[in-house]
Nucleic acid binder design. Structure first.
Lengths: 186, 186
DNA sequence: TTGCATACTTACTAATTAGTAAGTATATTT
DNA sequence: AAATATACTTACTAATTAGTAAGTATGCAA
């Protein structure tokens, strides 16, 4: 893989997570990387293509994360903690998450990006649902109601807590994050 | 107040809640209302001004809502339900909320809009905190931990549930909304 | 009836946007 | 050595953006 291509993707993702899809431009990337606009088009013919690539890449990283956790046979609490750590890292870096950034812009996204974002979100919800269900069965989680609804609640909470931290302050993320864990751990 | 001014504000708010701040343009408004671009500039000299006006207007509507509830002496559950009804209505209309739309775009907003959004968010959190605290004291709410943290959690949940409904489907909002209430009502 | 404020339109600008076509340097393969 | 593929740059376009300055129609007040 080309190093330039990777630097473009890395920066584009950062721009999406800090400025949003509709606020970042090819110029933002080219000026920062010291390359020309057309160089980005060489690797990513359209902004739609670049955006979709970033969602796909994010999806891939999630799949890799849960694969590694399966192998090491982490218990449910550890798996949840690993999942939540991704958001803790984002909060530290003043970023929000991909779903929280592209979700509000959903109606303006190219169809391929929309589809990929939906696929990833469903995949995360499915994984979380199973994790919560199993964890409750094993007595490490305690919560009322359907595990699927709880999974939606957990993901929603993490998405919004990063956004709240942006509007208010970092403490907001920590507070929400702690409340979530308090509610869930048996 | 001018009727044109009001129609601009109404449409601009809708555009922010459906397309986002950085994706909507003065053209979107002028073409829809059958007026010229410059007519919008007559009422709102800059996009910064228009954006800030919309946040202020939203803030005002929240203040009016909680004022009306105080007068009628609604109990805490009714007050929470009234508050949540705003989000239920948004979900029906395929909209997200102002904080959920402008929050992710925060870094790209003009300073006046940022300040106003912060003020409004803090005001909502303060109101929710007191409501939850009083409601728990009166035995109608049941939750663990600090009321302020719980207020952050409630607001976060509503913000993100609208976004999740956009990415997934309306059922996602209903599920999250129900989980939230189940958790809170004693 | 003159003057002034309100509510716009006309006509424009400068900047930025994504995107393209054609050229070029370098490395690799044949 | 020649041909080809890779990784770009140069130079451009058409569309869209927020914003402005000057003009105009209408109503109302002095």
């Amino acid at each position: 893989m080309s190093v330039t291509r990777e630097r473009i993707m890395e920066l584009a993702e950062e721009l999406i997570l800090t400025k949003g899809y509709n606020a970042f431009s090819y110029q933002d990337i080219s000026s920062e990387l010291g390359i020309k606009n057309a160089a980005i088009h060489y690797y990513f013919p359209s902004k739609a293509n670049l955006g979709t690539s970033i969602v796909k890449n994010n999806f891939l990283r999630f799949e890799e994360m849960i694969e590694n956790m399966d192998i090491r046979k982490f218990d449910e609490v550890k798996q949840l903690e690993s999942f939540l750590r991704v958001y803790v890292k984002s909060a530290r870096e003043q970023k929000i998450c991909v779903i929280g950034s592209l979700g509000p812009d959903f109606n303006t996204l190219p169809e391929a990006s929309q589809k990929e974002l939906q696929k990833m979100t469903n995949r995360i919800i499915d994984w979380l649902t199973k994790l919560l269900e199993t964890g409750r069965y094993n007595g490490v989680f305690a919560f009322k109601g359907d595990a699927h609804n709880r999974a939606l609640l957990v993901l929603s909470t993490m998405i919004a807590s990063l956004q709240m931290a942006r509007v208010l302050d970092k403490q907001a993320f920590k507070d929400i994050h702690q409340s979530l864990i308090d509610d869930l751990i048996a």
